[in-house]
Design a protein around this nucleic acid. Sequence first.
DNA 1: TTATTCCTTTTTGTGTACAATCGCTTTGCA
DNA 2: TGCAAAGCGATTGTACACAAAAAGGAATAA
Lengths: 215, 215
Amino acid sequence: MQSSNQELYDRICNMILSGELKPGERLSETKLAQELGVSRTPVREVLRILDREGLIRLYPKRFLKVAEYSEEDLQELGMMRIALETLSVRLALFYGSKADLLELRRTADRIVEAQRAGDAKLHSQSDAAFHVGLARLSRNSFLIRYMEDLTLLIRFIIMTQEYPEEVPSEEKLYEHHAVIDAMLEADEEKAVRILQHHLIDFYHLEGKYPESLFR
Amino acid sequence: MQSSNQELYDRICNMILSGELKPGERLSETKLAQELGVSRTPVREVLRILDREGLIRLYPKRFLKVAEYSEEDLQELGMMRIALETLSVRLALFYGSKADLLELRRTADRIVEAQRAGDAKLHSQSDAAFHVGLARLSRNSFLIRYMEDLTLLIRFIIMTQEYPEEVPSEEKLYEHHAVIDAMLEADEEKAVRILQHHLIDFYHLEGKYPESLFR
DNA sequence: TTATTCCTTTTTGTGTACAATCGCTTTGCA
DNA sequence: TGCAAAGCGATTGTACACAAAAAGGAATAA
């Protein structure tokens, strides 16, 4: 949707990401339209998109609500991310220039800054920017688009469902950098290994699946 | 979209898959609605979905057309499929029962039948059923859904853009079976290897990327 | 008190209207 | 002859209306 109601999409999306609309909350097209000062027609179209992206759930002829996800759902998403991000790294090494990687490294700087400042929103934004940025280097338009969808969904889940706050160690803070550095050294396997460990740890996948999955 | 206009979606989708609406063909919401005997409103909503799925392209406030894809696009999709289907196989081995695998094997039978009968449509349907069926064994709902999207898009490209007809060898005909057989032997690496070779060959990815990608 | 049925209110699905915008053709001009 | 501007028709985006259906609550029966 690079549509003209992109703006409307952004507004509703932000209402969901910001927690103004809470997971499980039942919505009404009519009320939403009134609140947003537009008619139901464009709202409906945006809601169909958000349903496909997984941020809301449409129960046709019944009702719609903000989507709810479990811890297991987040783990499944993490699994997808491992598979696709491994591909990203390998393709990025094939296509990406040193300059690309250095720019990505600066994005990683911003993640650390946000983390240190305790700004959860900025952190999740920067993190998404890093991972989508990495995907962009793959020159695979489908990979890029799907990584965008995945990161949006993951951001939504992490921002809204509240999980026990985890204090990241100094080492974990710089794992994004470590991935990039391994890539700068052209050590593909090392980069992949660090990335996968980062994701396995982040999504608590340790011990959930056999070792062979993470290769 | 498990919506009530699922039927409308199916009809338009079939018009596109069957080639009744050709890639690049410009469409008009008004005309489509008239042809289908409904108003523009539900047609618009279905078209937004099809745009996100990649079957049509919306150029907002301008026009819409049936999507066009190049050979390179198909290769990119093949790349995605390798990454995700490798994950499918590994998860299917972790979760799937022997009965599940045997059922999948029967789906593979249908692929061969369709191929032998020269029924391109049935072939692409059975092939999609096989790959989505494999994904289902992964118990990862996001993987399943995205594999559905991917196979739809790939079916569309293969069905509409005409590529030089390739006569599959006896051996290639039974590659799906070989994957399942390796899985039945619980030989994960063998299954993955056969699957990847099958896809690399099918999407003509040989030599396009470094070897390390296919692991 | 608890379950069931009926009624009211709300909500969705879809048709229609209308203005804004875009594309295309024609016309005017160099 | 080639190019730009203008006007016309077609198309989209959005508002609105109305019917069908569903949810919620009240009333009734057990």
